[in-house]
């Protein structure tokens, strides 16, 4: 009862948020490629994956990271992203809200099987880590000329 009274703002909105995420997971077939190694919805950092015929783009939404502390590796088509974010609050302050993620994280993503592990690039800008992996040429659609 007291939990309901005191935690009203946070809990109610979190419940809505949770509900929305569950609905999304239910209706959203887009969550398939993460497979058995995927993290729970809402884990830090959020990730988007896009595919075009030539490349696969992975966007990791992780603000306030030191790019040097990031560990990104690709083993065949298994991309793993690990790092740590330290959110420091100065001593002697009164803290009202701590919602930002603090600690270490790891996410492993299964990319399409035709990616080329030798052609990867990554850059970090405005708090988004953008990883581009080229796809192997033999898998790219070819136009066949009709004579």
């Amino acid at each position: 009862m007291f939990g309901y009274l005191t935690g009203f703002d946070r809990d109610l909105f979190e419940q809505f948020d949770q509900m929305r995420r569950e609905m999304d997971a239910l209706f959203n077939s887009l969550s398939a490629p993460l497979g058995i190694r995927s993290s729970a919805a809402g884990s830090f950092p959020a990730i988007n994956i896009g595919a075009s015929p030539k490349q696969v783009d992975v966007y990791v939404f992780a603000a306030g990271l030191d790019p040097a502390s990031l560990d990104v590796s690709l083993q065949q088509n298994l991309l793993s992203i690990a790092g740590e974010r330290k959110v420091e609050v100065p001593e002697g302050t009164q803290v009202y809200r701590r919602e930002r993620f603090n600690g270490s994280f790891r996410r492993v993503i299964t990319l399409p099987e035709d990616v080329d592990p030798d052609q990867v690039s990554a850059n970090y800008r405005d708090g988004v880590l953008h990883i581009t992996v080229q796809r192997k040429e033999e898998h790219q659609p070819r136009k066949i000329e009709v004579k």
């Binding site: 887009l30 490629p33 993460l34 959020a46 990730i47 988007n48 994956i49 595919a51 015929p53 399409p112």
Partner: peptide, 9 residues
């Protein structure tokens, strides 16, 4: 020509 495979955001 990008298509979304997966999207948290």
């Amino acid at each position: 020509g990008m298509e979304a495979l997966y999207a948290d955001v």
